[in-house]
Structure formats: C-alpha cells, structure tokens
Amino acid sequence: MVKKVLFALVVLSGFATPRSAMAGCTTDLLDCFGRAAKLDSFWYRTAAGLDCELDYTDCARRRIIGR
C-alpha cells in the first residue's frame, strides 16, 4: 500500500509542475481510470477506460491546440 501511494505521488509530481489546468486534465484522467476500474464487467471497464482517454485528449486539445 505504501509503495502504491509513493508510486502515485511520484507519478503525480511529474505531472504537477507547474500546477495547472493541464495538470487538471491529468488528474481528471487518473480519477476517470479509477472509476472505470471499479466496473465489474470487463467490456464496460475497457470501454470506460477508452472514454477516459478521449476525455483527456479533449481536455488537452483545449490547452495545446485551442487558440
């Protein structure tokens, strides 16, 4: 458990400089993956994971493509 928490902190620290709306995209993605992982059905879980990825790209698109 401690290892997992430390790993999560390390991963998040890599995304968190500077703390930003873009970092919000990433934390949203991790939250979304967390919710998807709780689904019982393999197929729903997989589809939900893919939707999480698309949500992330929507968010990222506003930041690095939007003008």
Partner: peptide, 16 residues
C-alpha cells in the same frame, strides 16, 4: 513534450 503537456499555458513554437 513533457513541459508542453503539463503547463497551464505552455509555450508553443507555433500558435498560428
């Protein structure tokens, strides 16, 4: 790329 992806208003070489 890592900076581009983690910044709020990342410096972009080409904005338009």
């Amino acid at each position: 790329p890592e900076v581009l992806l983690t910044s709020d208003n990342p410096p972009r070489p080409v904005r338009d």
